[in-house]
């Protein structure tokens, strides 16, 4: 079946896409699987189910999900303020949002540690309240929230800009209060973008290393993240052990991202944007 298109080149474009994907993503990742395949099943299981490793999964994935959730809420508020209100310095705030993208993560980690340490600017006051941030899982949460913020803001912002004010006016004239308008009219339209932002922030947080290791304190079973364990194994020349843990991370992340994608397709369907 051939139908005329304005822009030709489907075979070429698809071929290029697949080769590119293979070179950049699939081949390096399959190397991880191949390397870990040198282990017997029992050895593999022993490595990936060690208590220290299991606790690192919980910390890495648990805190990443939490950080992504926090970013979804505050990223939405951020995007809302940037789109809906005009205030002096708006452009500067807009530019600042991207800063976590550009900053070397180690710099972010050191800055956050200095800030939240027991003698830091914020840390000393929090300590009076009995809250310890640096060198605890809470510190990891702070770092992962920091690096994930731009994702939600940048995915939600364009959708919010396109959102017709008339929808809100229609809801108001039908008698809906502000909360109902937000929950039933605005949020459903934003939810695909929010989900994308959540998925990106989560994926970024799971893979984050640089900023976390400074603030986490890296206490085994308490504040060790999975990427740190991989690095530790590499430093001990345990390449196979490192790839085994990496495989678990990959499968976990892929499954979660796949589920989020599925959720997104489902919301799209529900919004009646079925084509063809």
């Amino acid at each position: 079946m051939k139908s005329p298109r304005v822009l030709p080149g489907f075979p070429l474009a698809l071929g290029y896409t697949l080769v590119y994907l293979a070179l950049i993503v699939l081949i390096p990742l399959s190397a991880v699987f191949l390397k870990s395949a040198t282990l017997s099943g029992e050895q593999f299981w022993t490595i990936i189910s060690a208590p220290r490793v299991v606790s690192s999964y919980r910390i890495s994935f648990g805190i990443s999900l939490l950080a992504a959730a926090i970013n979804t809420v505050f990223g939405l508020i951020f995007a809302w303020v940037l789109v809906r209100y005009r205030f002096p310095g708006r452009r500067i705030v807009d530019a600042l949002v991207d800063l976590p993208f550009a900053l070397p993560t180690a710099v972010a980690g050191i800055a956050l540690t200095a800030l939240y340490a027991g003698n830091g600017w914020l840390g000393q006051w929090l300590q009076l309240l009995g809250i310890k941030v640096a060198f605890t899982p809470l510190g990891i949460l702070v770092a992962l929230t920091f690096i994930g913020l731009p994702f939600v803001v940048r995915t939600v912002q364009p959708v919010l800009e396109d959102l017709d004010i008339e929808l809100e006016e229609a809801a108001a004239s039908l008698g809906a209060d502000r909360w109902q308008t937000f929950l039933q009219v605005i949020l459903p339209v934003l939810s695909p973008a929010l989900l994308t932002g959540f998925a990106l922030a989560f994926a970024r947080a799971v893979g984050e290393y640089g900023s976390v290791i400074f603030i986490a304190g890296n206490v085994p079973l308490v504040s060790e993240i999975t990427p740190l364990l991989i690095i530790t194994k590499l430093e001990q020349y345990d390449y196979v052990g490192a790839t085994a843990i990496a495989v678990v991370m990959l499968v976990f992340s892929f499954t979660l991202l796949f589920l989020i994608n599925g959720l997104q397709i489902w919301t799209h369907r529900r919004h009646g944007r079925i084509t063809g």
Binding site: L167, A170, A171, A172, S173, G175, A176, V189, H271, G272
Partner: peptide, 19 residues
């Protein structure tokens, strides 16, 4: 407020909730 006026409003571009 608009929601208290019990006024039906029909917009030029419909403003239907597409979801």
């Amino acid at each position: 407020d608009a929601r208290e006026r019990q006024v039906g409003f029909v917009f030029q571009h419909y403003a239907l909730f597409r979801h």
